[in-house]
């Protein structure tokens, strides 16, 4: 009787637990592991043959353009992260501390929308706005400036990255800072702490973990995006995602693209790991 009951419970539990395990093993873990395996395959006469050779790894690692691209991607993703964090901060600060609860909800509601709308079309829109004869240069022309070349520069790439990351960074920063205990801030003020010092010595340390998470997300998004560097940055200096794109689409060199993808994943995991460790360490100290 009892055994029967246990079995019955298990059937019910497994009905809910198993689908995702099976599905993700087949279509998430499967693809990722296969990609890792693929980096050791060989390409002969434009056909991929299964093998276990290190030739793709050694080929990619011996190419200067690979390391240039790596350095460039890490640099521009880091710059993007620093920019996004700094540009977002005053807005998040205002939304967290100056805005009413209702206004803050509305702001977050609005900022969620772009996250679900076509990034591609937004990028194309920037392409038109920032072009030599575009809206920005026309407006600058009225007050006697320009025209400036903004496309096919790192500036263009950064505008694209900001479009992608700013909404998320503002949301994460706002939520983090809004959840700080207000009495601690008041206490600091009562003890004579100046407003800027309050931000620097009370608010930022208290929201450190959330801020680091926001920065990690920002880095991941910028590091992995191929649209902004491709359409707005002109891709003269290809980033790693563009390298994957070119290698896969034009060269049929899937195994080499896999090498680039794996290097990217290792980099992202390291950044996320270090970031989380940093967030955690500071918290434990306090």
């Amino acid at each position: 009787m009892l055994i029967k009951k246990i079995q019955k419970i298990n059937v019910y539990a497994m009905t809910w637990r198993l689908p995702i395990i099976v599905w993700q093993l087949l279509f998430f873990v499967g693809p990722v592991i296969f990609m890792i395996a693929m980096s050791f395959f060989l390409v002969k006469n434009y056909r991929m043959t299964e093998a276990f050779e290190f030739v793709n790894w050694s080929k990619m690692f011996s190419k200067n353009y690979f390391w240039d691209s790596y350095l460039h991607t890490v640099t521009i993703a880091s710059v993007s992260t620093v920019f996004a964090m700094i540009i977002a901060f005053p807005a998040s600060f205002a939304l967290a501390f100056k805005a009413s609860e209702k206004l803050r909800r509305w702001a977050i509601f609005l900022l969620i929308i772009p996250f679900f709308t076509s990034y591609l079309v937004r990028t194309f829109s920037w392409f038109v706005i920032l072009s030599e004869n575009g809206v920005v240069n026309a407006l600058l022309g009225y007050i006697g400036f320009g025209p400036y070349t903004m496309l096919n520069t790192n500036f263009g790439t950064l505008v694209g990255y900001m479009t992608l990351t700013l909404p998320l960074v503002v949301i994460l920063q706002t939520i983090t800072m809004a959840s700080i205990d207000r009495t601690l801030i008041e206490a600091a003020r009562n003890l004579g702490c100046k407003p800027l010092a309050t931000i620097w010595r009370v608010i930022i340390p208290l929201s450190k973990a959330g801020l680091i998470v926001a920065a990690i997300f920002c880095f991941i998004l910028s590091f992995g995006d191929f649209v902004a560097p491709f359409y707005l940055g002109g891709s003269q200096e290809p980033t790693l995602p563009i390298l994957i794109l070119d290698t896969t689409k034009s060269g049929q060199q899937w195994p080499r693209a896999a090498v680039v993808a794996i290097v990217m994943m290792i980099t992202l995991f390291s950044v996320a790991f270090i970031g989380i460790a940093l967030a955690y360490r500071k918290k434990a100290k306090k």
């Binding site: 693809p31 191929f226 994957i244 899937w254 896999a258 993808a261």
Partner: peptide
């Protein structure tokens, strides 16, 4: 790990997912 299994995919760059999916589904 069970929860991570479902939550991880959106944190991996789409271009990498695209390559992995293409290779695996072709296979």
């Amino acid at each position: 790990p069970y929860i991570a299994l479902i939550l991880l995919p959106p944190t991996i760059p789409l271009i990498i997912m695209a390559l992995a999916m293409l290779a695996w589904l072709s296979k």
